[in-house]
Each structure stands twice: as C-alpha cells, then as structure tokens.
C-alpha cells in the first residue's frame, strides 16, 4: 500500500509542533500511518469516531476545555460534517483545524471518490472555510502553523487539504 510514510510523518510532526494534543479521526487509506503515529504517541489523545460529524463536537469540547485539537478525515467526511461545521464550530466561533485527505483528484483510480473530489474546494468556498493545499513536503510545517494561527485568530474552522503528491507514492 503506497501511502507515504514520509509525508505522514511530516504532517504528524507539524501537528505536534503546533501543540495539537487531541486528534479525532475516521481512518481511511491515506490516513493509516497518521492514525498509527497518533495511536503510538503517549502525548496524543486519539479519538476514533463512528462518523466524522462527531469529531466537530469533540474538538469544540476540547477547545473549550483548553486543549488544542485537530480533525483528520477524508473529504467525504468533510461532506458528512457540514452542519456541525456551520452550526457548531462557526456559530460558536471555535477554531477548528481540519486535515482532509483530498481524494478524487487527478490520478484517482476509484470511481466512488471522484464526485466528492470534484466538489471539495467549492464546498469549502461555500462554507467560507479558508484552506491551503498540502502538496509539497517542504511546505507542510509552515502551512500547518499558518492554519493553526488563522483558526485561533479568527475563531473559525480552517482546512488543510492533504494532496496525492504528499500522501501517495504512485
């Protein structure tokens, strides 16, 4: 399974450097190494969800309790979380760092990923969620830090899209 170990490690180290200590996830193929890294890290509280929307609630609770958190999910999980993003994180002005694997783009081999891939960025625009792509390894640490800063300064959700070039070794 050519999920990039190196790319996953970079993302995980950047999350730790941002002070993230609680990670709620719904695993998918591109995220397996990231989930394992969190699972093996005694400093990280890993919350495995039944459905991604729960993760918005968990992160809101963690933030109010004073612990930095992030959500890790596929872009289809983002689609499944829309009401919670709007009616909880945005309504209550809570910084929410969302790391979203960007499936269904160029190079995608699975038909079922393609429709979600086609609407992901338009959806983020519609939700007024600022986002950056994580594609090149050398950008990961800075972009994650920038996303965290913006989320906390604006008290709003911010997304980072984990791209194929970073997460998958074709």
């Amino acid at each position: 399974m050519p999920v990039s170990v190196e790319g996953s490690r970079l993302v995980y180290d950047a999350l730790k450097a941002c002070g993230v200590r609680l990670l709620s996830v719904l695993p998918e193929t591109w995220l397996v190494h990231l989930v394992s890294l969190a699972d093996e890290d005694p400093e990280m509280t890993l919350v495995r969800l039944a459905k991604e929307e729960e993760g918005v609630g968990v992160s809101v609770g963690a933030h109010l309790a004073g612990v930095r958190s992030a959500m890790l999910m596929q872009n289809h999980g983002l689609l499944a979380s829309v009401n919670a993003i709007v009616s909880l994180a945005q309504l209550y002005r809570v910084p929410l760092l969302m790391l979203v694997s960007y499936r269904g783009g160029f190079g995608e081999e699975h038909p079922w990923q393609t429709e979600g891939g086609a609407v992901t960025e338009d959806l983020l625009h519609a939700l007024r969620v600022p986002y950056l792509l994580l594609e090149r390894p050398e950008e990961v640490a800075a972009r994650l830090r920038q996303a965290q800063n913006l989320a906390e300064a604006s008290l709003r959700p911010v997304a980072l899209l984990l791209c194929r070039g970073l997460m998958w070794e074709d």
Binding site: S24, G61, A62, L88
Partner: peptide
C-alpha cells in the same frame, strides 16, 4: 453550564471532548 443550540446530537460529543481533554472534571 454550556448550551449547544442547534447541532442536534452533538451535545454528548462536546461533553466527550471535554471529558477526554480534562479527566479531572
């Protein structure tokens, strides 16, 4: 006391996030 208006179903998820983040509460 914190009241989660809207976002039906997520009150327990918010509570879970607090409980895991702050085991002393």
């Amino acid at each position: 006391f914190f009241y989660v208006w809207h976002s039906m179903g997520l009150a327990s998820s918010v509570a879970l996030g607090i409980a895991l983040a702050r085991p002393e509460l």
